[in-house]
Design a protein around this nucleic acid. Structure first.
Lengths: 235, 235
DNA sequence: AAGAAGGTTTAACCTATTGTTAACAGCCGC
DNA sequence: GCGGCTGTTAACAATAGGTTAAACCTTCTT
């Protein structure tokens, strides 16, 4: 099965029973849910993560859903927000939308309906209207790396196709061009685990990259014993 | 603030009184509203214009809102759709979302709430959504794609008729010509769901498109393992 | 109402790509 | 020279993609 990354949802709901049930339901449906019990905690968690969607209860102690939503909007103008509420005052609904809500559900609601709404909202948000500051293109001596297409080209030759790991690793080296890229950084960023086996796996990839880069003798990957690697371009 | 062009809304509602009131209300709020009195008329009008949003009553004579929505979806996979309905059967709501609704309102509803929902939906839709440009004609090597008519022609040959999905997929590839079109994008935009089966279905459509495109050896669809596809024109 | 036709999804089978691990060899620094 | 790094290759397992055909579902016809 193709493993697409699960979308991350921040759920802020003070009722512990309801919160846990909803969290479980969404988890079963393949979302990665972070549950906060009040507005304060919700905002802390929001700041520490990149969420694809926020579900906020309106009535909560310490900090209500509207206030939280405003703080979230200040940090991030585009993350979708869904409000949940027991009362259904028109003024509240309008206030919610004015803050920039994407939807508004009155309790009790059907969980399947919520699921559909979540999907509908996530669909309208295309992956590329998020301003991606990611850098995809690098010049490395006479090489040119396009890490979006995973292509490494040398002068006029046909580009070589890189595997995802080859590509990630070379990109990380390029980001630290002529400088040290520590083992630890590569392992935590790319392999998401730092142990003997991932470390050996990384060495295998360094070997593969060296093979690709042999064509330009001014480019090489140097090892710094016990520290990491250094992609250098001579001259 | 710059005066943006009024957004065009297709309103399909068989109750004449309610329809006119709603149309006026939306017009006052700076939308350009086309009112159709039944599903038949709604579809005719849809075909003749580019709408930014559709508001469909579910229960209508001749052609109900769901059927109309499906026809609209076949023509245009991404235009937002809001359903209005008097009854609120859960099955109907889910059916609506399954077709690709963006929202679902039960009558009676507050017109201000509808207005806010419309704004929330359009806001998500418009931000420089480069991918969703309203472009329907493409030159792909020696091919010419008219994605309104769903015609793919090669030189002077008779055009091949494409099915809705074939057409949407080729159009999306063409919008990203020579660049990566991610699986995720195609699945969320065209299939409106991203899972194992829709992913395999997409592969089947890629095979179909490759068959059509074989006539021009300079045109091909390349795979980027784990990421998506790339429609390239050589030279 | 039955059947044909067209479109889409699912299943099945096969190939290609990718990542990990083992094995063995050489290297570093003390 | 010794023990822990690093370099390299090859085998293997797991996953993704290519293709065809059958199943399924609507819609259109008769």
């Amino acid at each position: 099965m193709m493993e697409n990354e699960a979308k991350k949802i921040l759920l802020v709901e003070d009722d512990p029973n309801f919160g846990i049930i909803l969290k479980d339901y969404l988890t079963i449906n393949n979302f990665e849910v972070t549950h906060a019990k009040n507005g304060m905690e919700g905002f802390e968690k929001f700041k520490r993560n990149d969420f694809d969607l926020c579900i906020l209860d309106v009535m909560m102690p310490y900090k209500d859903g509207f206030t939280l939503a405003k703080e979230i909007r200040d940090k991030n103008a585009s993350v979708p927000i869904i409000f949940l509420t027991a009362k259904s005052l028109k003024e509240d609904v309008l206030k919610g939308y004015a803050i920039g809500a994407d939807d508004y559900l009155n309790k009790p609601f059907d969980s399947e309906v919520l699921l559909m709404k979540i999907k509908a909202i996530l669909q309208r948000k295309t992956p590329e209207n998020s301003v991606d500051t990611k850098q995809f293109e690098f010049r490395i001596g006479e090489f040119f790396l396009n890490s979006k297409l995973r292509h490494l080209s040398y002068m006029q030759d046909d580009p070589v196709k890189l595997s995802p790991k080859e590509n990630d690793l070379l990109r990380l080296l390029a980001l630290h061009l002529n400088d040290l890229m520590t083992r630890e950084l590569a392992l935590t960023k790319i392999w998401r685990d730092d142990n003997y086996f991932t470390s050996r796996s990384m060495d295998v990839y360094i070997a593969k990259l060296r093979k690709y880069l042999k064509r330009d003798e001014n480019v090489e990957i140097l090892n710094i014993h016990g520290e990491g690697f250094r992609l250098v371009v001579k001259n």
